[in-house]
Design a binder for these strands. Sequence first.
DNA 1: CTGAAAGCGCTTACAG
DNA 2: CTGAAAGCGCTTACAG
Lengths: 353, 353
Amino acid sequence: MDAEDLADLIDVPEPIAARVTIRDVAREAGVSISTASKALNDQGRMTPETRDRIRTVAQTLGFTPNAMARALVSQRSFTIGLLTNDTYGRFTLPVAAGLAGAMVDRGVSVFLCALEDDPERARINLRAMQEKCVDGLIVAGKRIDRRPPLDLARLPMPVVHVNSAAAESDIAFVPDDFGGAKAAVAHLIALGRRRIAHVTGPDSFAAVALRAEGWRDALGEADLPCFGVAERGDWSEAFGFAVGCRLIMAPSADRPDAVFCGNDQIARGLIDALTLHGIRVPDDLAVVGYDNWEIFAAATRPPLTSVDMALTELGRIAGAALLDLVGGTRVEPGIRRMPCRLVVRQSCGAPAN
Amino acid sequence: MDAEDLADLIDVPEPIAARVTIRDVAREAGVSISTASKALNDQGRMTPETRDRIRTVAQTLGFTPNAMARALVSQRSFTIGLLTNDTYGRFTLPVAAGLAGAMVDRGVSVFLCALEDDPERARINLRAMQEKCVDGLIVAGKRIDRRPPLDLARLPMPVVHVNSAAAESDIAFVPDDFGGAKAAVAHLIALGRRRIAHVTGPDSFAAVALRAEGWRDALGEADLPCFGVAERGDWSEAFGFAVGCRLIMAPSADRPDAVFCGNDQIARGLIDALTLHGIRVPDDLAVVGYDNWEIFAAATRPPLTSVDMALTELGRIAGAALLDLVGGTRVEPGIRRMPCRLVVRQSCGAPAN
DNA sequence: CTGAAAGCGCTTACAG
DNA sequence: CTGAAAGCGCTTACAG
């Protein structure tokens, strides 16, 4: 009985075909390893024939360069880490998609690290990213006034923050809450609304203050008064619904003709309450939300006009900035507030376009 | 003017402190590199004093092993790739969270690859994963009857599929749609409902057939007839709403006393329509959804009882299976249908627990 | 118990 | 134009 028969009997794990290396390519092409390397990387000078022959051989053999070996000598791993606190949430998701999409085109792969708001988990993930020699780090949060529990000091690689609190000495990209809110309210004013209320989330969020400011500013520029004060509660449908029920109690002359909501859930709850009591949206009262949580905003009856924070774009831009840093390009520190975009549907009463 | 002054003037990028390597640790501890390596990896035998001294030195110097160098010799990178078609969606998200959480504890990092349903992007990502020498791959989809546009043949590393179509020769984990549906309907029956309808998504989804089968099976076991046929439409609130409006037209004797919905959005639309027309949920009509899309189900009025596909668990289990494969443990091929879990809220009329 | 040497798969000066 | 050599940061037989 020879070795092969034996292998059949004892079910030896099939020997995975040894990966083809640059050494195999060189041998097959009849050149040295250095020449093969140069041909494959378009470096140095050689006759086009040699280069082509080597490339063809590599192709035929199914050669895939080993990125780890390459990283070891070039000191660039072409990987980055995405540290996020919001793995379940809808904020990091588009950021991650934008980031990953932009990176893959540049040959960079993204490690996903779920922090779960747990300092210990954060520490472990950070250490893993160092061991794996990532070229840089994106730290993504779910709100602009908190940062993930990470000790980023004395890190050997550049860091870019997204949708998270940051110091002036950091490099950070966040949505422009003030601008987004202002544009939404200006749009309502342009549509002829005059009594515009604001119903929004808890005071503890910096975004709440910024959006309220945008609301006030837009009204001020149009010489309109604020309709009451910005009303604050949870970021929930339940809160929106409760406010809606309260509005119904008021004599209609005391009611706003539009409400700018701090997020889509509040807007949805509000609209549902109004609809349930026969107040027509947008005819009697226009509503605008915030977040443009697509699947949600589009399903509201009527579909919700909402401010989109362009998070995918944010991820893309943050990634580009990080690669600039990695490449040695200087990036001015500071917190960049990136423009939001108003997505017009029907709840604001704009004519269909 | 010496070099330092010059550096100040021309703004040379601050030389990043050279990373401390095992060679630095060895020198500082007065041992050879091999001894340092063995001490740090708990290999070989040496006096505890030597081992401790080396470890202390490593600690003090802030030594972080270079995972790429290690991978090069051990042929294990301690990375895996997550290839997904659903970067924006809510299916892969919990899968990714469960996977990343389980992996980090075992020292494995996860690359996030967004396929975007684009074969070219898929190809690029797959190649990147090969170059980066991942130990294995998780392929996650958004439905159990389609697979991402990937050519997985002749891949040098193991692959595990999650929530995606797979061959019998693959290793795959999917939610048990039949079982989840059956449990939901059985629950309604146990609560005394007898006229249970089913409103669900498009015929083209395998999950639709499986869930309808579960509905039929639960009714059959209780000797109850199906209430009409499984009604199929979009996976949307709008469809649920339309069905709700139709139900209202029917004389109440011809109405179901419960509706099992194929997803939460349909359930939500249905409930909203019923509520708008004065039919009380759950008193007049009980509703159960599918997906347990938390933020959505909990906000429905009344909060929605729904089937949870345990996707986080699915991600965790798939990761564990993949690591088994990587470690050489044999894993039986086949498609595993993992149990779903009914999350009881108020829309089904169960007593508060 | 400890260390010198070879090697993982590449790239990059440097000779020829 | 091409190749031999050194080296990236580790681990692992193998000597001593």
